[in-house]
Lab assay of single mutants.
Amino acid sequence: DYYQTLGLARGASDEEIKRAYRRQALRYHPDKNKEPGAEEKFKEIAEAYDVLSDPRKREIFD
Results as ranks from 00 to 15, higher is better:
53 S>G: 13
50 D>L: 12
56 R>C: 10
38 A>C: 10
45 I>D: 02
17 I>N: 00
40 E>N: 13
10 R>N: 11
35 E>V: 13
11 G>K: 10
58 R>E: 04
4 Q>G: 05
38 A>P: 03
31 D>T: 14
62 D>N: 07
42 F>Q: 07
5 T>M: 10
51 V>M: 11
57 K>Q: 10
15 E>G: 09
6 L>F: 01
47 E>G: 05
23 R>T: 10
53 S>C: 14
56 R>V: 12
37 G>T: 04
12 A>H: 00
57 K>V: 01
56 R>K: 11
58 R>P: 04
21 Y>H: 04
4 Q>L: 12
11 G>L: 06
2 Y>F: 03
35 E>L: 11
50 D>K: 12
4 Q>W: 07
20 A>Q: 06
13 S>R: 09
9 A>W: 04
62 D>Y: 06
48 A>M: 00
21 Y>E: 03
39 E>L: 15
13 S>V: 05
31 D>V: 13
22 R>K: 13
30 P>T: 15
9 A>H: 08
61 F>Q: 04
52 L>T: 02
62 D>H: 03
14 D>Y: 11
37 G>W: 08
18 K>I: 15
55 P>R: 11
42 F>P: 03
41 K>N: 07
38 A>F: 10
10 R>F: 09
45 I>A: 11
49 Y>Q: 05
34 K>Y: 06
60 I>E: 15
27 R>H: 10
36 P>Y: 07
28 Y>M: 09
28 Y>N: 05
43 K>P: 00
3 Y>Q: 01
55 P>Q: 08
47 E>H: 07
1 D>S: 08
52 L>A: 02
53 S>K: 12
58 R>L: 02
15 E>S: 11
29 H>D: 06
4 Q>R: 08
62 D>W: 04
33 N>T: 15
27 R>C: 14
29 H>Q: 12
40 E>I: 15
25 A>E: 10
56 R>A: 12
27 R>W: 11
35 E>D: 05
49 Y>S: 05
49 Y>H: 13
21 Y>W: 09
1 D>P: 01
24 Q>Y: 12
56 R>H: 09
33 N>V: 09
26 L>N: 02
37 G>Q: 11
31 D>G: 13
35 E>T: 12
21 Y>I: 01
1 D>A: 03
34 K>W: 00
7 G>L: 07
53 S>N: 04
34 K>R: 10
59 E>L: 05
9 A>F: 04
56 R>S: 13
45 I>H: 02
33 N>C: 15
32 K>I: 03
47 E>N: 05
27 R>S: 13
